[in-house]
Design a protein around this nucleic acid. Structure first.
Lengths: 313, 313
DNA sequence: CGCATGGTTGAGCGGGCTCAAGGTGAGTGG
DNA sequence: CCACTCACCTTGAGCCCGCTCAACCATGCG
């Protein structure tokens, strides 16, 4: 009979925290995705855009908002117009929350009323057994939508926890309804996103169920790196990794101790290095090989526009 | 380093198969869900119903089709009208396929064009690693929708295999589009279904990752029993279980040998009995206790009508 | 009969867990 | 400036659950 793996979950190392918060704060206006300039504050689209459906208006110079990372992901499925980007940015700007420590966004069993979208930082979705064992079932990275079931399920089935430095936007049901009516291509993209998330869940099942410890950790890291890369957050093989070894272990269904040993092994093999919340992958090919990783399930390759179909609600 | 678990996957016991096929064939017109009588063949709704949106017409006596099991599941979320049931039954009757042996419905990497709905029998969704290890990531029971990503993903990320005796309906994109336009409440229910499926995936991750062998098997059986019960397929604590021990093992990420031993243990404890593809659970309470099972994640409790929101496509 | 499929059982081992201790670096309070 | 705390990382010794390998059995079909 297995016993409890008591990995303490408490506040966070405050020093590193400050750093990541500072970093996040410095990015209020990222460089314009279209022209690359960040020297001027872009006016946000008017709230009216959420309500009315109208043709794409050509924009003059810098007069648009910075693209949210979610837009980048939607682009993989169906490229968005300037207007659509702006409307999405507007919708994501109405209700933003930043946390500095680990914070429960939604407790297991609670009823949610908003769709949560990660703007920056990470969140993790976890389930806890009565005996204290914990399984992380998903990591939500910048640009990810946290939970779709939120919109219809009477109660959420797992806890969503924001990690230090996370910034989330909430979209109310009403706002989403309007978005749905005025910009159906955006909500169509959300539907796709939800299916992509399901595919990731399935791959995690293989990871936990079938792979050995080394491949398991390596595979998860490959996935994270690829997903971060898709939203432009990998810089020279490095990225922020605001989680603890205990988190990584719980995501891979491994003990903290064994996770540590496995990470050490990967480090000794020069496949990764991970210090101070910064992950570096010097050779992605090698790591992918160690994990037998194939990015196909992430569905970042895009598809032809006409192939899309989603269900109205 | 783990090595290959070579559990052979080949055709099926054809004798039992015949039986189940016969059984399925005998049910072309199940007893009417409304009045319980099956003595008269109900005319199917006209194809026109798929196209036009019109008010619910009162039906005279027996003049309606048998409800598909999918309708029962949708009822848990939002009760369907008579017309909606009939239209759904019609849509599910246009393209039906019955298999007698294990049959690949969709190969990993293929592009699907139809939404598949289980009418009868089981299917399982699985991923296979290069080294031959297999993970079953989902069982699809009668009334379940097989794959939602099918509608948009360029290629499916896992293989869907029909088990002997399965009967599936295919809904083409066009038909689904019409259904969406004429009966939006049905497609809204499908969206819900997809989220319920995601919740099941998450619970499986806990199962595989955190529970010991006994609880793992027991939990999966509890889930199956509960899901079958939800569509009325549990009779006096018994149900059909058209899978092998190897399947059950692969779903729980366990070896066939160990699955067998664990089943034996459960049998010795009088928690289950399983012979000739018939599972019997004499004491569901006891089994649930052994598995620490709670059915909340299955979302079969229903929700208030107004709380629903889904995304158009 | 032979063969295929699936279920059953045993012997042995090893990967990952448990338990336990120590190490490190950043706050914090004197 | 120091001692102390707290959160996280690291490492070691030992053991057990579940895996591997290898039979054998039961049943049904050609």
């Amino acid at each position: 009979m297995r016993l409890i793996a008591l990995t303490s979950r408490a506040p966070w190392d405050v020093a590193r925290l400050r750093r990541s918060v500072q970093k996040a704060a410095g990015r209020n206006f990222a460089p314009c995705a279209t022209c690359g300039r960040a020297d001027r504050i872009c006016p946000m689209p008017s709230e009216a855009m959420l309500h009315e459906r109208r043709p794409v208006a050509p924009h003059s110079g810098h007069a648009h908002a910075p693209d949210p990372l979610l837009a980048r992901k939607l682009d993989y499925h169906q490229p968005l117009s300037r207007l659509e980007r702006d409307v999405l940015a507007k919708a994501l700007s109405l209700d933003v929350r930043t946390v500095q420590q680990r914070t429960i966004l939604l407790e297991q069993g609670a009823a949610a009323t908003k769709l949560a979208v990660m703007l920056d930082g990470w969140a993790c979705r976890q389930k806890t057994l009565p005996d204290g064992r914990r399984q992380i079932v998903a990591f939500y990275l910048p640009g990810d939508v946290c939970d779709f079931s939120v919109l219809m399920a009477p109660a959420i089935d797992s806890t969503i926890e924001l990690l230090p430095g996370a910034r989330v936007a909430g979209i109310s049901r009403d706002a989403l309804g309007m978005l749905n009516r005025s910009q159906p291509r955006i909500t169509r993209g959300l539907w796709w996103e939800s299916q992509a998330a399901a595919a990731i869940q399935r791959e995690w099942m293989i990871n936990i169920g079938q792979r050995g410890a080394r491949a398991r950790i390596a595979h998860l890291i490959c996935e994270i790196v690829t997903r971060l890369d898709a939203v432009g957050l990998m810089k020279h093989g490095r990225c922020a990794l605001p989680i603890t070894q205990a988190d990584l272990g719980d995501a891979c269904a491994m003990t903290t101790a064994h996770t540590n040993r496995t990470l050490r092994q990967l480090r000794d093999e020069k496949l990764i290095s991970w210090r101070d919340n910064v992950l570096e992958v010097p050779d992605r090919e090698a790591l992918s090989a160690a994990a037998a990783f194939s990015a196909a399930y992430l569905q970042l390759s895009g598809a032809e526009e006409g192939a899309l179909l989603a269900l109205e609600l």
